[in-house]
Each structure stands twice: as structure tokens, then as C-alpha cells.
Measured scan of single mutants.
Amino acid sequence: NRRVIAMPSVRKYAREKGVDIRLVQGTGKNGRVLKEDIDAWLAG
């Protein structure tokens, strides 16, 4: 149960899109989840 590193704005964006942020692979520094990662996850 790893802790997800993401800015609050990215967490909010994921919530609005209905994405469980824990399932998204972060590509930022130290595995940080970026807004682009959410978009990529939604695109498949």
C-alpha cells in the first residue's frame, strides 16, 4: 500500500475524472503522478 506522490490539484483532477490515482503510474520526479499521467491513463 504505497503512498502516492501527487500535487493536490492533480488529485482533484483525478477525482473529477473518476480515476483511482493509486492505479496510475507516475512519470514525474520520484514517481510523482502528473496531470499528463492521468490523461494517459484515461486514453488507455
Rank of each mutant, 00 (worst) to 15 (best):
D37W: 00
Q25A: 12
A40G: 09
G18Q: 09
R22I: 07
R11Y: 08
G31T: 04
G31Y: 06
R22Y: 11
K29I: 13
A40F: 11
V33G: 00
K17L: 13
G44F: 14
I21D: 01
G44Y: 14
V4Y: 03
L42R: 06
E36G: 13
L23F: 11
N30G: 12
R22V: 07
L42A: 07
A6I: 07
K35G: 04
K17C: 07
E36F: 09
V10E: 09
A43N: 12
L42Y: 06
R22T: 12
L34D: 06
R3P: 14
N30E: 11
K29W: 08
N30K: 12
I5A: 07
W41S: 04
L34G: 06
I38P: 00
V4R: 08
N1K: 15
A43F: 09
N30F: 13
E16C: 08
N30S: 10
G26Y: 02
G18P: 00
K35Q: 08
N1T: 15
A6S: 06
N30Q: 11
I38M: 01
V10Q: 02
R32E: 14
I21G: 01
I5Y: 04
I5Q: 06
R32G: 08
V19A: 05
V24I: 13
Y13F: 04
D37L: 00
Y13N: 04
D39E: 07
I21V: 07
G26K: 02
T27D: 02
G44H: 14
K35P: 06
V19H: 01
L23A: 10
R11C: 08
L34A: 05
R32T: 09
V19G: 00
I38Y: 00
E16M: 14
P8F: 04
E16S: 13
N30I: 05
G44I: 14
Y13T: 05
D20R: 05
D37Q: 01
K17R: 12
V24E: 00
Q25V: 14
G26F: 02
I21H: 02
Q25Y: 10
T27K: 06
R22F: 10
V10F: 01
D20G: 03
I38C: 02
R15V: 13
E16L: 14
G28N: 03
Q25C: 10
K29F: 12
A14Q: 00
R32H: 10
E36N: 11
L23H: 11
V19M: 04
W41T: 05
L23S: 10
S9C: 06
I5W: 02
L34M: 12
R2T: 13
M7I: 12
K17D: 01
I5N: 06
I38V: 13
K17G: 04
I21M: 06
R2C: 09
R2S: 10
S9L: 08
G18E: 08
G31A: 07
E36H: 13
M7N: 15
A14R: 00
R11E: 06
W41L: 07
S9T: 10
M7Q: 15
K29G: 08
L23N: 10
E16R: 12
G18D: 08
G31P: 02
A43V: 13
A40P: 01
W41K: 04
P8H: 10
E36A: 15
L34Q: 10
R3L: 07
L42V: 11
G26N: 03
D37I: 00
I21E: 02
W41I: 07
G26V: 02
E36D: 11
I21P: 03
A14W: 02
D37P: 00
G28P: 01
D39K: 05
N30D: 15
R11G: 03
V4G: 08
R11F: 11
R2L: 11
A6R: 03
G44D: 15
A14M: 01
G28E: 03
I21L: 09
